[in-house]
């Protein structure tokens, strides 16, 4: 397999996170959380460093990464879009909203648009069922979203209209 070398400062960052958890294998999930939070995703090379630091097998790390849908090995778009598919959102039409996002962006769930701007994922309940159906862009929450609003939401994040940039 061709080896991709991680930047030294990325490796250093991963080492620091592992050290915060005393390099304990039992803290694997917390380490993965932190690293994904900082890097946006968990590519193979990153998992290899984590495995080494925690003295765990790479296969085990990969097993955990693939078990939890929260973890991703693909780079996320600049603006990750998540559509809630929890029960409340689902019965209020989240699937139609999702279909519209897929159509307009031309990507499937788990993919990132070619320009790297948007990625699409589903999640289960953000605890805002009163606002169903709910869409998250970055950390900004949109409530009562209808398929008609989708193009407006996307437009907010296109070049020159980034006034509503999420935090």
């Amino acid at each position: 397999m061709p080896k991709i070398k991680l930047a030294e400062k990325t490796v250093e960052l991963i080492r620091e996170i592992c050290a915060q958890f005393n390099n304990q294998e039992t803290e694997l999930i917390n380490v993965l959380h932190q690293v994904q939070h900082k890097l946006g995703y968990l590519p193979a090379e990153v998992q290899e460093v984590i495995a080494k630091e925690l003295n765990a097998s790479v296969a085990k790390v990969y097993g955990v990464v693939t078990f939890y849908s929260f973890f991703t090995m693909l780079p996320q778009g600049q603006h990750p879009i998540s559509i809630c598919m929890g029960t409340a959102c689902y019965v209020r039409g989240a699937e139609k909203v999702l279909t519209e996002f897929k159509r307009q962006l031309g990507i499937e769930v788990g993919q990132t648009s070619a320009d790297g701007k948007f990625s699409l994922s589903c999640l289960r309940c953000v605890g805002a069922c009163g606002l169903a159906p709910v869409v998250l862009v970055g950390e900004k929450v949109y409530g009562r979203v209808s398929p008609q609003q989708v193009s407006k939401i996307i437009a907010e994040y296109q070049d020159g209209c980034a006034s509503a940039q999420s935090a």
Binding site: Q47, A56, S57, V58, A59, V61, Y62, G63
Partner: peptide, 26 residues
């Protein structure tokens, strides 16, 4: 893993899609 400590095989994915595999399905 436990007897040989080679650590090549692990169960990956979830539910019906679970399978025993080397890391990254290599």
């Amino acid at each position: 893993n436990e007897v040989q400590t080679v650590g090549v095989l692990s169960t990956i994915n979830r539910g019906f899609h679970s399978v025993v595999s080397p890391a990254f399905e290599m």
